[in-house]
Design a protein around this nucleic acid. Structure first.
Lengths: 127, 127
DNA sequence: TATAGTAGGTACCTAAAGGAAAGTGACTAG
DNA sequence: CTAGTCACTTTCCTTTAGGTACCTACTATA
């Protein structure tokens, strides 16, 4: 299946009308995209192996997949050096950096409210 | 498996250190949670059937699951009326409403940058 | 000759999420 | 006595994501 047709299938079924943020979720909040973007933003340009190390438990296959998607979406820039052995470096793009305020907003909400969620869970489970 | 142990397994593998927003993703951006919260915020208190209608294609099973999770996380309030036939109403909580700025930030980014992502994809696919 | 080093690609497998369809319980209107 | 309402619940099946393990090319080095 081509990536193009995959786009249609990858939509999370967010019904078009009632939710204007639906389209972004698959772009920004897929399983590994958030920590990848975060890492590239924090630690700057990284090689494939370094990035894998920083992310900890990701497998090469998945890292390749996610990086390819992020590159296709214009959020990450890939530079290939045809040396032996090969070297590839990834960095966040301007478009990727433009997500900063979104992440900041999310981080602020987390800081302020994550504890409330955890308390709500305890109350719910107790009852 | 209990919901408590499910919490641990549901984590998306976002490696703890490098990404402070990881914990929220499962709470706010799971498959159907975003449109559910959005709908409850826009259209107010809704019964189960009404909500299903507004969301379009969701199945009762999944809607029940997601609503239960949202209730447990304190983002949605559930009111059960023991009538015959039974009636249940769902509404967004204050904690749920506190996500407003996050959603707004995301909506703004979408408006400003979704077109850029789509263009990046076209360029990428062309090459 | 053999090995290490790098960034992947491939084939196969498993687990989890999600959808489809039918059933449940309790009552009421016909 | 049957059908309908509502909010689920249960069972089964398909899809998907992710993991494991192995393979690729190419060269310098031992």
């Amino acid at each position: 299946m081509s990536d193009k047709t995959a786009d249609a299938k990858r939509t999370r079924g967010h019904p078009g009308q009632p939710c204007p943020v639906g389209p972004v979720l698959d772009i920004v909040f897929s399983r590994w995209t958030t920590p990848i973007l975060w890492t590239l933003n924090e630690f700057g340009r990284q090689r494939f192996g370094e990035l894998a190390g920083l992310l900890g438990t990701i497998t090469p296959k998945v890292l390749t997949q996610r990086l390819k998607q992020l590159e296709r979406d214009g959020l990450v820039l890939r530079t290939y050096y045809p040396e032996i052995p090969p070297r590839v470096e990834y960095e966040i793009s301007d478009l990727g950096r433009s997500l900063g305020p979104v992440f900041a907003s999310l981080a602020r909400w987390t800081e302020d409210n994550l504890a409330k969620v955890e308390r709500a869970r305890q109350d719910f489970d107790a009852a």
